[in-house]
Nucleic acid binder design. Structure first.
Lengths: 209, 209, 209, 209
DNA sequence: CCCTAAACGAGACGGTACGTCCGGTCTTAAT
DNA sequence: ATTAAGACCGGACGTACCGTCTCGTTTAGGG
């Protein structure tokens, strides 16, 4: 998420330039206290206990200051996560699709199997199911993640490792679907071994025949 | 969910046979009014508006009667769904894995793309993220669904259509993962075409080589 | 309270004699278990905690068995008290009004200053304020107590110790009013000394002039 | 009850002056709507029907706003009564104790025999029996009332109409005891004639001999 | 010895109110 | 204009009791 798309920027940057900005400016201290508080509370007690009141109290901030800059709890958490938690696995380039894919998925799985990270992702996903605004932010986040994977797979096609006919979106959604499904249901772990097997499976599906 | 695992059966069926059961028996009318109310409310207004108070009022039932037999809202909805909504696709047997798989996934996708069904599933999944009791019921539900798929895939292995070495659980979680991921994030549809492509991809991934 | 006015006698004694009575008879064990339970609970936890459910559970009795024989909680407690607690001071005859009155009031005060007794009386009085049935039973109880005092005072008038013109009901209500007021508000104790002073005051008020 | 002892004043007036008070101030509109609602409900339906929910609904107020400022239903009613109902008879000064006393008691009885007032007093007394916080407020209220009467009686002693040796508290509790006893049990009325007789009786008890 | 009737322990039922929590809005005084 | 503080209305939560209503069982006459 780029700085300019961050929710809740002060109106000054949006104003029609006639009136440049008047009054007190947004407090960066408040902003970061809020993000910290959200992460901390979500770490401590899990989704319960993460209330707007609690965030405000923990951050030493008025509730209005939260509502002024974020549309919903989910947005706060997601912004906190993406900014702080280093949740976004980098796109590697090892020379082969299988290796790239394995490396990317392994990094992603490792992250997601940290309970602190998983707790946050699961929370945001749950919020998104009844809060359209969280759904939108989550939509942007997941789209970005899918793009990373698309880069890898399309490079594979370009190198002629994977069939041009392969449906890349199908592969992507299998990969992230697998990840989220295990995270959300919790019936099986997200190990490095699973990442490797999944990567190989996906490549086998899309191999040039 | 079999009748005997239904939550909240009267103690008689559970008691160690010493004391056979005394007192008034569970009212089937109340039970079914509650399930109906839950489905109706979830259909009308989506997850918001599905409150215990509303269910009780709609069903003409005391709140305690709900709490007596179900641990949580999610459990009510899930039981209502599994009992009423015919959500469970049957395990077909067409002679070939690809056909079986395609048919199974197509039926499942068709179901899940009905907004009435999807709304309920998404609601239960969201609930499960902060309510352990819903998580447990959802766990049972998803385990059953995975078993259906496992039957198909293991039949494929038995018929030597699929490699014995294939990791069946990996395939299963790719399939259901794909389904849930698209349902929950909503970035792409669940069409019959996707079901077919997914089925073929999974088979190709597990083919005897 | 005489035996025949005890609430909840079996209909047999009321039936029009055509059909004498058939079926199981009232269980004395249940009756006394209920009264015991009421006293015990009121002793333990004070008015809170004295619920019909609790009485039934403590007595090992179905709730219906309580509702069958008593119209209200207050009635149970009052019957328990009058039957068990020996709450009714006897009417003494010492030869002089002042002595009789002092003795009667002292006995009454001593009783009422036992917290176990006072708790019960205060409970019944509170109940009576919003439950007409308790109010009625309490009315009977207090009427009886007033009659005891009336006997003493009218004997005083007969002996020419007190003026025939004295308003006996006024004196009685001053005495019991004093008692209840201190019991209910709790701002001052009910000592033997107070009983004596009160008795003397009342006698002085009603002396033949 | 003076304004400064009114329960639930904003912390500002209580705070140690370090932080002068910040945030929205207590809404006088809400406060008075609550008191009105309490009186109205108690007038309409008697103690039943006077629930916190009903008060909040009638006053158009959140329940929390009630709980924020009053410890209990009884406290609300008592504050409403003392503030609105003009329940406190003034201390007259007619020149003679008997006249003062008669006038005071007659006014008090007239008030208490209005069913609207009596209903409220009886309600508060009943509440006080199982709610310590109501008991406390009621204690303050009755203490104040006793003080009014004490002023009259001590003036009588000062003027040498009443014996210096008379136990003033004994007389006071006979008077208010009489009042409350008849109000609570309801076996006899509180007429002007009774007020006069009571006043004369009490004076006769305490006359200089 | 059965038959009918009533009382029993148990406990589920529809309701009402409770007191708490939280959401989202608003009003202060201060910066 | 924004901030921390905090009161406001609204509404869902889960619990506790209420008084009623079945249940199956037990205990009495009366035929």
């Amino acid at each position: 998420m780029t700085s300019s798309s961050r929710p809740g920027l002060p109106p000054a940057e949006v104003a029609p330039a006639g009136r440049p900005h008047t009054g007190r400016q947004r407090s960066e201290a408040a902003r970061s206290a809020i993000l910290n508080a959200a992460l901390e509370l979500l770490g401590d007690s899990g989704s319960a206990g993460l209330t707007i009141d609690a965030i405000a109290a923990t951050a030493g901030v008025g509730k209005q200051t939260i509502y002024r800059w974020w549309p919903s709890k989910g947005a706060v958490v997601l912004e906190a996560m993406t900014e702080r938690a280093g949740i976004e696995a980098p796109v590697p380039d090892c020379g082969s699709v299988t290796e790239d894919l394995t490396s990317f998925l392994a990094a992603t799985f490792r992250n997601a199997s940290k309970s602190s990270v998983s707790r946050k992702l699961r929370f945001v996903m749950a919020e998104a199911q009844h809060d359209p605004q969280t759904a939108e932010v989550l939509g942007e986040f997941t789209a970005e993640r899918r793009n990373s994977l698309r880069v890898i797979l399309e490079r594979g096609q370009a190198r002629n490792e994977l069939s041009k006919a392969a449906d890349v979106d199908l592969l992507i959604d299998q990969a992230f679907g697998f990840l989220w499904y295990r995270m959300l249901v919790g019936h099986a772990p997200l190990t490095r071994r699973m990442a490797k097997a999944l990567a190989e499976g996906l490549v086998r599906q899309a191999l040039v025949r």
